[in-house]
């Protein structure tokens, strides 16, 4: 296996991990399978496209073609995607959590509402922007490094580093902040959290905004490799959901390991000559189903050495 393949696998894993961690955290703390995660992804992509499109002439006029100009564009792209993702999270909170969170059968209702939001968003984006793919400015520039004979594109390296930084910040926030402690408490025992004065209504909003921002980050990074389109969120949503399941819903390290496994699996299957890209999806699902048959609690079940 050459280095280029490893970088490609890590590139896939970074995007998948950003999606899967969001879905996993959301399920175990708020109790919601967020089908609108794909919609958040697509909206963040379009928000970044609109903002960078509007800023391009302004930035070009003030900074010219300098390094500073591309820096400003990169900051605008990432922050607009993060902000749009967080806003989507707040909208999901208002529509799919707040009105129904204390009704019976809440997880199913939330699933249906977020699925409706997802479909509605895709149709809305199609209506307003049309089915055409939109290219975003390349914030990492064009080009590649040659290391030990392997070619590493700037966008691949940037995606891996960017995702690692965002995930590191998220995990540090969960681990060391007070709000993060509350989220972890809620993930592990909802009743105990309630008896510790941790309110689900209050804590759900920052969680939804955080996971939305993670989806926005994934959109910003993936836009460096492929185009933005109304249905761009479907594949990341499916991959994120299945990887979150593979990791054992609710386990953040499990989701990360799952994303790495699937990233490498896809890269390797795609590189085998007689299999190729068309077998990637089936190989992924076969692997996930196999793991869940052997370990029903997913990878997280293996990591978890505490008793219930």
């Amino acid at each position: 296996m050459d280095l280029g393949l490893v970088v490609y696998a890590l590139n896939l894993a970074a995007i998948y991990a950003l999606m899967a961690i969001g879905i996993s955290i959301l399920w175990s703390s708020v109790g919601m399978i967020n089908m609108a995660h794909g919609a958040t992804f697509a909206i963040s992509g379009y928000a970044a496209w609109l903002v960078t499109g509007a800023l391009k002439p302004v930035v070009a006029a003030t900074f010219g073609k300098t390094v500073l100009a591309s820096g400003v564009m990169a900051a605008a792209l990432v922050s607009s995607a993060l902000l749009a993702g967080a806003l989507c999270g707040a909208v999901i909170y208002a529509l799919a959590f707040l009105p129904i969170h204390d009704k019976p059968n809440y997880p199913v209702r939330a699933l249906i509402i977020t699925l409706a939001l997802n479909i509605g968003t895709v149709q809305g984006l199609l209506y307003f922007f049309g089915p055409r793919n939109q290219g975003l400015p390349k914030i990492f520039g064009f080009g590649r490094w040659e290391i030990w004979g392997a070619k590493i594109r700037y966008d691949q390296a940037g995606t891996i580093v960017g995702a690692a930084v965002i995930m590191g910040l998220t995990l540090a926030w969960l681990r060391y902040s007070r709000r993060g402690l509350e989220v972890r408490a809620m993930m592990q025992n909802a009743e105990g959290a309630a008896y510790s004065g941790i309110s689900r209504q209050v804590t759900a909003l920052p969680i939804l905004m955080l996971t939305g921002a993670l989806a926005g980050m994934a959109a910003a990074l993936l836009s460096q490799t492929i185009f933005v389109s109304p249905t761009a969120g479907v594949v990341p949503l499916v991959k994120g959901l299945t990887i979150a399941l593979l990791g054992g819903l609710g386990s953040v390290p499990g989701a990360m390991i799952g994303a790495l496994l699937i990233g490498f699996l896809e890269a390797i299957v795609g590189a085998i000559p007689f299999l190729g890209q068309r077998y990637v999806m089936s190989a992924t699902f076969a692997f996930i189903i196999l793991v869940l048959i052997v370990r029903p609690r997913g990878i997280g079940g293996l990591l978890d050495d505490t008793r219930e």
């Binding site: 204390d102 402690l181 972890r184 408490a185 592990q188 025992n189 909802a190 009743e191 105990g192 959290a193 309630a194 008896y195 510790s196 004065g197 941790i198 309110s199 689900r200 209504q201 209050v202 978890d304 505490t306 008793r307 219930e308």
Partner: peptide, 25 residues
């Protein structure tokens, strides 16, 4: 459970049956 955190903040402390612990903390 919707009002429980508010009641806890009003000054009702609970050690529930089964302990309701957080296993990973």
């Amino acid at each position: 459970g919707r009002r429980t955190p508010g009641l806890v903040k009003m000054g009702i402390a609970v050690a529930p049956q089964g302990d309701a612990i957080f296993p990973g903390l």
